[in-house]
Amino acid sequence: MTRARIDARFAALKAEGRAAFVSYIMAGDPDYETGLEILKGLPGAGADLIEVGFPFSDPMAEGPPIQRAALRALDKGMTLTRTLQMVAEFRESDQTTPIILMGYANPLVNRGFDAFARDAAAAGADGLIVVDIPPEEADPLADALDREQMSLLLLSTPTSDDARLKIIQKRTSGFAYYVSVAGVTGVKEADAATVAPNVERVRAASGLPVAVGFGIKTPERAAAVARVADGVVVGSALVDEVADALATNDSVTARVLSKVESLAKAVRSARDSA
């Protein structure tokens, strides 16, 4: 399994002729039980792939929404170990939805790359995104993941020229992740017009399906990106639902899954109307 699960999902979506909807949640936000309930509800709400953030105290590329989500999770005692436990619990009832872990280097360095890769694969995680490990530092981690048949997804950005896209592609498998804005998560809005040519560049360099993230907040924007990319990632807008639900004493799970439904619907129907 593992990497194969990502490939199978993108192959199936290609056959359906639509883009993937990828939802990001922060593990343990607002607490472990609610986080697990949301995670289990995501496939039913329309998430084709799931990114599970593992919290870090100093997330240098996150805007305020995900910074606050990480702090909420850490305040409730969330750790990398508990994140993997959550993935394992999810896998008891779902064998097909790919799970991509996402976070920062230090918790992985602290655990040791080999031990992390073994534990993550055993829990049922399929891939990994580490925001502060660029290709220049990726080899030891990529080697450890390779041994467990897990994918490393190195990010491509608006500042990555064609030469860098080739370097990024060397150690990337599963799918290519294009960060559509130069900036932190959840602040600037992605512009579908400028995204399209960059998705083509990344697709040409990688030969992989291309998912686009950072800066997609609304169903309209998600649909626009779904017309040009193979996947649409939404993160900050979902963790904002957690924050809003907490502030208004709403059901966190219901609010997040309802937002996922509206975004997933927009992605699924994007190419019908095109």
């Binding site: 491509s156 950005t157 500042t159 900036g183």
Partner: peptide, 12 residues
């Protein structure tokens, strides 16, 4: 040491 930065910064 090293260069543990997001890809956006790496070209810079």
């Amino acid at each position: 040491g090293g260069r543990y930065v997001p890809e956006t910064l790496m070209p810079l």
